[in-house]
Design a binder for these strands. Structure first.
Lengths: 202, 202
DNA sequence: CGATTTTTTGAATCATATCAACGTACGTGG
DNA sequence: CCACGTACGTTGATATGATTCAAAAAATCG
């Protein structure tokens, strides 16, 4: 029984236009992916696991978090459809991860196994560059969030998030947003009230 | 007039043992590096610049910071001798950087130009993997600092820094440490007094 | 030595955390 | 379809801790 080929218009467009793969390369690459579904609240990855897949989110929404020294969950980022997730550090060095990655909605994922990842690198040279670029951009985005975490007020962080991912607050419970912003849910609630009552001019 | 070959025992050891280069490859690589000195307070990079070098710190100490929306400097990290610095995002995509990188002491640097970087990738295949690993580790470390920034108290952040880079507070003015921790110098001063008076048992 | 930078201290203020309680929405099983 | 339980969001009162501003003390540099 032949498995149905993975399918994602957005990803395939990216492979063509960003990675500059030709039709054959796109076909090869897509054939390397396997589908996986995750129910809301299920985990893709938990602390101690070894991450065996690079994961493309075809549909749904996930959160990456750690459990800190006070046993408190701290959300590092959300990933929506048409983004990648996983722990590359764990994936590459095959060491246990410190992250939890959990579905916040029912998710449809496309998985690239380690074996197929290395096959892609070998058989589709453009893939490695495409992938390296993503790593680079992820790192850059982490540094941006780091500077934001250090210097911005909770209100600024919230407004920034609203600007960059307005969909998020419609889809994700607010206490997760609070955790992402590094504040308590009660503070986020009050902050939002402040903003609604005294809306920004700009 | 032949320029003197760059020399760093630590880097050469790493190239041999971590990157697994042979003598010839190490020689080639080292010959790609050029020396540069920086006086205390001088900048290696400023906002708007394009980063044209991957930089190895042979001697000295640098800080990377941004200037935030309130015109306040926010330190993202320190780099001591035998580490790398620069802005890879800017280096690779040749786009203006948002970072400032400044010498906190007189520094001796080894520079790898873009041209020589790509020559290294081509002529010494092991180099690319070596470099990619560094990017990966940097990203991981940024995520760790991000979770720390979000969840730890100033005291925990300070103690963590003390544990991981005890040299730092001997070498770097404390108001820079405060900026790195995301607090005001006055708060750091009081925090340190608290810790000295009530030292940890562990 | 004088000038500048860095660190400390004090007092008042402000913002967020905390704790407790309540209201609301949601979804599951009866 | 309703009822109940759970998860989520809000509100209030209070406590805690960092910021702010001002100033002095200490260290560093030329």
């Amino acid at each position: 029984m032949k498995p149905t080929r993975a399918f994602s218009p957005v990803l395939e467009k990216e492979l063509r236009e960003i990675a500059r793969m030709n039709d054959e390369e796109v076909e090869t690459y897509m054939s390397f992916l396997t589908k996986k579904s995750l129910r809301k609240k299920e985990h893709l990855l938990m602390e101690g696991d070894i991450c065996n897949y690079v994961t493309y989110i075809n549909k749904g929404c996930m959160r990456r978090y750690i459990i800190d020294d006070h046993s408190k969950e701290v959300i590092l980022n959300f990933s929506l459809e048409d983004y990648w997730t996983g722990d590359l550090e764990s994936f590459i060095f095959q060491k246990p991860t410190e992250f939890y990655i959990q579905a916040l909605e029912d998710c449809e994922l496309l998985l690239l196994s380690r074996e197929n990842f290395y096959r892609s690198c070998k058989e589709i040279p453009k893939f490695k560059n495409f992938h390296d670029d993503k790593v680079q951009r992820n790192h850059y985005s982490a540094l941006k969030r780091l500077s934001m975490a250090k210097s911005a007020t909770p209100e600024e962080k919230y407004l920034d998030l609203m600007k960059k991912q307005p969909q998020l607050c419609q889809r994700v419970p607010l206490h997760y947003i609070a955790s992402y912003l590094g504040i308590e849910p009660e503070s986020l609630s009050r902050l939002r009230k402040r903003i609604i009552i005294h809306p920004q001019i700009s």
